[in-house]
């Protein structure tokens, strides 16, 4: 346990530089985005009303009021989120391969630590999970700051104020990241967690059997997906709803846990018996 926590701390430390860059980029882009979009809206309004003498009512009718919605759906907001998502997807692989590739033989050290090798895997998974949650938390802090910046830049008559919850609920992708119920939150992040474990297992297949392992890894991903999606595949097959939503939820939770358990068990086996440095 102690080694596991130390390893988590160590892995987080190793990613910290890139992580801070990602956070910095997100903060800059999102806040600059708010300011630029607000300013250009106001400039647009000024031009219309003072130069072309468009009445206020007509302007609002044509252009709508400025709200955070036009910000969160812009590239300024979505861009860094997409970048972070891509970075983490990449990092799921990189967190393993950087210890193997090139002249770096740090994996020797990790595998020779006097602790269960599974701890190495669990610490890497935990690291990814914690850092993703960190990004989501940061997003939650950035939203009210963005709202405030917009309020400073756009006069009351020209804007629609929204609560943070309203902003999130109205944005498709933010709603996935920050759903409005705890259960939905568990489902979303549970799915993500499951995907990480399945991918880790596939990576270990590759690290154990190289080219053959790539194939095994892909096959494993397909099998894991098939297990998890079995009820939905069944419903699709019979072209009808077979389960009540609550039933489906419970079955999916059980299957999800099953897939995670199988992945961890397989990873443990590969780490102890098959993996090669």
């Amino acid at each position: 346990m102690k080694s596991y926590l130390k390893l988590v701390n160590f892995e987080i430390g190793r990613f910290m530089k890139i992580y801070l860059v990602l956070i910095g980029l997100t903060i800059l882009s999102q806040l600059i985005g708010v300011i630029i979009l607000s300013k250009s809206y106001v400039a647009n309004a000024n031009e219309a009303i003072y130069e072309y003498l468009v009445p206020f009512g007509q302007f609002i009718e044509e252009y709508g009021r400025m709200s955070m919605m036009s910000v969160v759906d812009s590239i300024w907001f979505m861009g860094p989120i997409a970048l972070c998502a891509a970075a983490f997807l990449f990092y799921i692989f990189f967190i393993w391969y950087r210890d193997w590739v090139g002249k770096n033989t740090f994996i020797y050290r990790l595998f020779m630590l006097p602790t269960a090798r599974l701890n190495v895997l669990l610490s890497k998974a935990t690291t990814i999970f914690l850092l993703v949650l960190g990004l989501v938390a940061m997003q939650l802090i950035l939203l009210p700051i963005g709202s405030m910046l917009m309020k400073w830049n756009v006069p009351l008559d020209f804007r629609t104020d929204m609560t943070i919850r309203e902003i999130i609920n109205n944005s498709h992708y933010l709603f996935i990241l920050i759903p409005d119920s705890f259960i939905q939150f568990l489902i979303n992040y549970g799915l993500g967690f499951m995907a990480v474990f399945v991918l880790f297992t596939a990576i270990l297949f590759e690290r154990s059997f190289r080219w053959k392992g790539v194939l095994l890894g892909i096959v494993y991903c397909l099998i894991a997906s098939a297990i998890f999606l079995a009820p939905l595949i069944y419903e699709f097959g019979i072209q009808a709803s077979f389960f009540y939503p609550v039933e489906l939820l419970i079955i999916e939770i059980i299957l999800g846990i099953l897939v995670i358990a199988i992945s961890i068990w397989l990873s443990k086996f590969l780490l102890n018996k098959k993996v090669t440095v």
Binding site: T105, Y108, R109, P114, T115
Partner: peptide, 16 residues
């Protein structure tokens, strides 16, 4: 895993 406190391996490239 406890054997790694009794035996160690120094590969030909650094493990750090």
């Amino acid at each position: 895993k406890d054997t790694y406190e009794k035996i160690t391996f120094i590969p030909d490239a650094i493990t750090m």
